[in-house]
């Protein structure tokens, strides 16, 4: 593409933005509002995802061992479990430790279970974590088959329901974001169509004197990118300000693990900026094609 043309395209785009101030403001506001809503949805989804990840990563299984096992049998079992596919960590919990934990959960010294019961009723156990929490049920059934393991607990039933819920939450938020994006494209295309409609005579003339479709499109695309980026910029500033004050006000107070990592948020904001530019271009493309058909 010739430099002369590039200069021409940018100048035309800029002229058009300045000439149709009302439409420019309308388009930028439309993009802003769309990106703002989209950004809120994405932030909510990201946070919901964070919560779900946390819940899921808490899922682990406990393998209770038969009583009369020797030390070497126990370490053999540990071997076998850690060799299973998808196992992240295996931690031995002796019956004494288990009892101490139990007592502690009842409020320290008040209950001396051992003397009450006469002996420690608890078995040795292994706490097994999976690399992917979704593998827990599968691994648990394998662990249960190992000789010397008499029972595996992982919150059977509850965990499956948790996974079902998180799956649906993820699918629904994804669908929500896709729908929002489509709505945004439609809204932006409609606004941009007004701007293009105002210049239909110019486009018709360009076509009749022999301008190529791309020569006509470029200034409009540049205009769309500028509108989209500008609109997105406004909404990101607003969104970033609101979210950071939200995080600093409640992030430390509640147990909810808000997404606060700088890089993740920055990536999100950059993605929203790009989304603004893309919405601008796609909106322009959709609206423009009809007028090029001369």
């Amino acid at each position: 593409m010739r430099l002369r043309n590039v200069v021409y395209f940018w100048r035309e785009a800029w002229k058009s933005l300045r000439r149709n101030k009302v439409l420019t403001i309308a388009s930028v506001s439309t993009v802003s509002i769309c990106i703002l809503i989209l950004g809120m949805a994405v932030l909510m989804t990201a946070n919901a995802g964070n919560v779900m990840k946390k819940l899921e990563s808490d899922v682990e299984m406990v393998a209770f061992l038969d009583r009369a096992l020797t030390r070497s049998q126990i370490s053999q079992i540990e071997e076998q479990i850690s060799r299973l596919d998808g196992v992240k960590s295996v931690k031995f919990v002796s019956r004494d430790t288990a009892l101490a934990r139990l007592e502690k959960s009842y409020g320290n010294k008040e209950y001396d279970l051992k003397s009450t019961l006469g002996k420690n009723p608890l078995p040795h156990s292994f706490e097994v974590k999976a690399k992917n929490p979704h593998d827990v049920p599968r691994i648990a059934s394998k662990v249960g088959k190992i000789e010397g393991v008499y029972k595996v607990n992982y919150g059977q039933g509850v965990v499956e329901r948790l996974f079902a819920v998180t799956k649906w939450v993820r699918a629904i938020s994804l669908a929500f974001i896709v729908l929002l994006s489509l709505g945004a494209i439609f809204l932006i295309a409609t606004t941009i169509r007004l701007a293009i409609y105002a210049r239909r005579k110019e486009i018709y003339l360009m076509k009749l004197v022999g301008a190529t479709d791309w020569f006509i499109r470029w200034p409009f695309f540049i205009e769309g990118i500028l509108l989209g980026t500008l609109g997105a910029l406004f909404s990101i500033l607003l969104l970033a300000g609101a979210y950071s004050s939200l995080v600093s006000n409640m992030g430390s107070v509640y147990f909810i693990p808000l997404v606060t990592g700088g890089p993740i948020l920055n990536q999100l904001y950059i993605a929203l900026l790009a989304a603004g530019a893309v919405l601008g271009v796609v909106g322009t493309y959709i609206s423009l094609n009809r007028f090029l058909d001369v």
Binding site: R2, R4, N5, Y8, R19, K201, E202, Y204, L205, M206, L208, V209, G210, A211, F215, I216
Partner: peptide
């Protein structure tokens, strides 16, 4: 070259800009 009954000039361009327009858009 096409000439129209209703001229089809761009109102916001001067005479010479209207003429230049036909050349600009073909590069």
């Amino acid at each position: 070259g096409i000439v129209f009954q209703d001229f089809k000039l761009l109102e916001n361009k001067t005479a010479s800009e209207n003429i230049a327009f036909a050349m600009e858009v073909v590069g």
